[in-house]
Write a protein that binds this DNA or RNA. Structure first.
Lengths: 218, 218
DNA sequence: GCACGCCCTAAGCGCCCGCTCACCTTCGGC
DNA sequence: GCCGAAGGTGAGCGGGCGCTTAGGGCGTGC
């Protein structure tokens, strides 16, 4: 694999699946620009400039500016769904799987904040068809989390009054990390993940969430 | 007061303080447009059109499009701060005040979703000075919530491991309501407020949050 | 009854947007 | 060494943007 699929942390290199190289550089530039300024405030000239190309080069690899956003959104949502699905289908109790899901989901939103910001907050800039495709992926994310909580209720581990509302709140809490998290802030993605896993276990009524929590880094 | 300061619910009519009438209509139109499409995707022609005026009329009352956003943001944040301050300085235990703060804050984000969306998500479109002013208001909101949680910890009602992190998460949870809430959805603002008050009490470690919860409307 | 000041409009300026087009370079295959 | 495809560039088009300006109704004071 010449495109460096694996990083030191064992994580798959993001955007590794996008080829050729020029198309990937444009896409990465677009993610940065969209995250900083928002889709509508970003110009195609800015994207091309960040990728070290002329404005016209963008249109060799992408039909429109919206196609860039669509591709980013789909890849990002597939990654998010993958994270939640892996945690949901893992071994362990519902409490462990929920903590794992929230922890890794939050780590992704904090660590890959630029991508997450675009993925979670620029949805409305897509046209109706593209939007519908992405919304379907989001519903599958919701179903994964709801499944874990249902398991916990069935097993008597959790105590929730409103299954759908609680699921919505848990996902909402995680997603909003992309809005406020800053690399210059006092917390690492791991720390936020651990904090949020604990908070979510409390939300679903686990008695002693701190008994064997995910370890904070410091 | 000829401008209908009070509504049936006893709530102050929003934007009642904005005069003259034409300026208020333009501001309300801008709130709707910004909430629907985002600040950058909204044109001054669209705002003026919604207010039933020509594009030039906007500039009689506002110097720039950004001044509209600034005014909306300041008024909205002052309202949000007022809601939290009222709850924080009320009577009752820390649990009751926290439930009250979260409940009313969430009701505002759901019931006045268009305003809240602009206020919470279009901050980055402001210039540096205006942005700094709004950020200061946000910090005061944070301080109000943190104060209640501190009180609860001191009184032995709450059990939190990370005061600042928990405060951040509580506010984040409430704010994100503006992103997902829909008037076409199955929940009323009151119901979401009650649900969230319960979830937040659980997050801070209150043992039996449902013992005397805020009543749902139905 | 008429001059004045307050709102508002029609028209349009200068700019920059998304996107296109004609042309140029590079490079592997034979 | 020539050729065509792939991938790039410079210039620029049509249009919509934020905002300005000259001037028109119209209620009000006297």
């Amino acid at each position: 694999m010449s495109t460096a699929e694996e990083t030191a942390g064992g994580e798959i290199e993001p955007w590794g699946e996008v080829t050729p190289d020029a198309a990937r550089r444009l896409l990465v530039a677009a993610v940065e620009a969209f995250a900083e300024r928002g889709y509508h405030a970003t110009t195609t000239r800015d994207i091309a400039g960040r990728a070290g190309m002329s404005p016209a080069a963008l249109y060799i690899h992408y039909k429109t500016k919206e196609e860039l956003l669509h591709r980013i959104s789909r890849i990002g949502h597939e990654k998010a769904l993958d994270i939640l699905r892996t945690a949901a289908r893992g071994e362990g109790s519902a409490s462990e799987r929920l903590a794992d899901a929230v922890g890794s989901f939050v780590r992704w939103h904090a660590g890959r904040r630029t991508t997450a910001r675009v993925v979670q907050y620029e949805l409305d800039a897509l046209g109706p068809e593209a939007r519908a495709e992405i919304v379907a992926l989001r519903r599958r994310c919701d179903a994964e989390v709801r499944g874990i909580i249902e398991d916990g209720v069935a097993a008597g581990e959790f105590e929730v009054l409103d299954l759908k509302g609680t699921t919505l709140a848990v996902l909402s809490l995680c997603i909003d990390v992309a809005r406020w998290f800053s690399v210059h802030g006092p917390r690492t993605p791991d720390e936020v993940g651990a904090l949020y896993a604990d908070l979510v276990l409390r939300m679903v009524g686990v008695k002693r969430p701190g008994a064997a929590p995910m370890q904070s880094q410091k």
